[in-house]
Nucleic acid binder design. Structure first.
Length: 483
RNA sequence: GGUCCCAUCGACUAGGGGUUAGGUCGUCACUCUUUCACAGUGAAAACACGGGUUCGAAUCCCGUUGGGACCGCCA
């Protein structure tokens, strides 16, 4: 495929820095990029922004690709699958950035600066003290060519900064927010190239988005204030900036930016707890986006989302992440999931229960899935199926088992069950109704003691079902205890 | 503090000049199921405020207030 053809089609990128786990906000950004690309038949590209050597985390990229992949978000180009615009690690593109930096220096859009981090800290401290804006004061702008050459020759550590022009109004149109204007006097002389030779985000993302033919930048709102800097770089290099779409943030309950302090933010955590990928994707897609036009359905598969997703329907304001609604949605998916697929996903949670018969697992899971907000809750519902002795909980329920009527029922049922070869839901029900006739005990007085005697609890799934799973031997044992 | 962004029930949102302001989660009540849950029905619950524009503003404009993001040799 020629580059020319590519220019016509939509290309978006997800550009995370590999700092470890995958943030819920990152997932949403990646999702929107993916949906936008798929919706328009474009390409979804993964680019790793690893220009901060101090923040690199081993295995983070592999983890990210794994997590995204497990949720169904795939990339057409990226560090693993390659592509015509690589390399897709920014750390492997250093010469490229260097080259464009030189170009910026040569055309007067950037300059060398030699302050140490300590000097800059001091400068900011003073500015703060005076109640002024903390901002690079442009002191290195005044260095003469000779001074610069001299310092360079001496091998002094240096950075390259963007020379932001004065008194200009920078404006751009954001696909979500509309027209945004800012005066250039408020823009810092941003560092483009760090003293370790690595570019900053600002330079690297501009260069790469251009070189990789990115047509639309879809990213979090936190980037919106640095767009003007990027515009200046595009201009200085004679390039057109891609379309921009800044999606609103996902928020904590207190409306601040979603953060670790206030709950789980790692997608891995949600997966580990047994949130289904379909539910996660569905729920996240509805955070800051909706199909609109009075559409009241809230359940969408990834494929359906690809069909109906548009940037126009992305919200302008932030969305609070509501775990309760996620639970509700996950429960819905669990209840309606193909049972065999659900069993597969649930197996790890049966591991230490001693329940291994696939028949039993299927029966139990069918009975308890309605209670599950997430798969990790399975073990707490397993107790009634695996306990060897019954201790009523709360203890006060014990009284109900020790009255005369109850004892009468238990004895009657026990002798019925003893005659059975095996117990299933049907013959259990039959036996109980016979007990009812014989003893004259009925209604609550019949069913409640039985439930407590068999499970230790006053509520739970249907009793005949439980009886079938418990089996003859256990039922006899449990009934016998109270006679 | 400066700049930028934002503003419909507690939360997610529909609606964007004339609506009884609709739906979902959550909450509450009732029904169903001899339990709980599920399901069903119903209820309480919102256009931040003030000015314009208009016959008419939740909707358009301005301001106020409130919230958020950003202000690093981090992304």
């Amino acid at each position: 495929m020629s580059i020319k053809e590519n220019q016509d089609s939509i290309r978006v990128r997800f550009a995370p820095s590999p700092t470890g786990y995958v943030h819920i906000g990152s997932l949403r950004t990646a999702l929107f990029n993916y949906l936008f690309a798929k919706h328009s038949g474009g390409k979804n590209i993964l680019r790793i922004e690893d220009t901060d050597q101090t923040r690199k985390v081993e295995g983070a990229v592999e983890n990210l690709i794994k997590v995204m992949g497990s949720l169904g978000i795939e990339f057409d180009e990226g560090p693993i699958q390659g592509g015509n615009y690589g390399p897709y690690y920014q750390s492997q593109r250093l010469e490229i950035y260097r080259k464009y930096c030189d170009e910026l220096i040569n055309n007067g859009a950037a300059y060398y600066a030699f302050e140490t981090p300590e000097e800059l800290d001091e400068m900011r401290r003073l500015q703060q003290l005076e109640g002024r804006q903390t901002m690079y004061d442009g002191r290195a702008r005044n260095l003469s060519e000779d001074e610069v050459r001299d310092k360079l020759q001496k091998g002094m550590p240096h950075v390259i900064r963007l020379k932001v022009p004065a008194d200009r109004e920078i404006r751009f149109t954001d696909a979500i927010k509309g027209v945004i204007k800012i005066n250039s006097n408020l823009i810092d002389d941003q560092i483009l190239l760090k003293s370790d030779g690595f570019p900053t985000y600002h330079l690297a993302n501009v260069v790469d988005d251009h070189l990789m033919n990115i047509t639309h930048i879809i990213r979090g709102e936190e980037w919106i204030t640095s767009v003007p800097k990027h515009i200046l770089i595009y201009e200085a290099l004679g390039w057109h900036a891609p379309e921009m779409a800044h999606v609103p943030l996902i928020l904590n309950k207190d409306k601040s930016k979603l953060s670790k302090r206030q709950g789980d933010v790692a997608v891995e955590d949600y997966l580990k707890k047994g949130y289904l990928k379909e539910a996660l994707i569905n729920f996240i897609s509805l955070l800051g986006w909706n199909p609109g036009e009075g559409e009241e359905n809230e359940f969408y598969s990834l494929d359906e989302l690809c069909k109906i997703f548009t940037l126009e329907k992305v919200q302008t304001s932030g969305a609070v992440f509501n775990p309760e609604k996620l639970n509700w949605m996950n429960n819905y998916y669990i209840k309606n999931y193909d049972i065999d697929r659900l069993i597969e996903l649930s197996l790890p949670y049966f591991k230490n229960s001693g329940i291994s018969s696939s028949d039993d697992i299927k029966k139990i899971l069918s009975a308890i899935r309605v209670y599950l907000n997430k798969l990790e809750e399975i073990p707490i519902h397993l107790k009634i199926f695996i306990q060897e002795d019954i201790t009523p909980e709360p203890a006060s329920l014990k009284d109900l088992l020790e009255n005369d009527d109850s004892k009468k029922i238990f004895s009657a049922l026990k002798s019925k069950i003893e005659k059975l070869d095996f117990v299933n839901a049907e013959n259990y029900k039959q036996a109980v109704s016979e007990v009812q006739k014989e003893t004259g005990v009925k209604g609550k007085n019949l069913f409640k003691p039985l439930r407590i005697a068999l499970t230790g609890s006053e509520n739970g799934p249907e009793l005949p079902l439980i009886a079938e799973i418990l089996g003859k031997e256990k039922i006899l044992k449990f009934l016998g205890k109270w006679i």
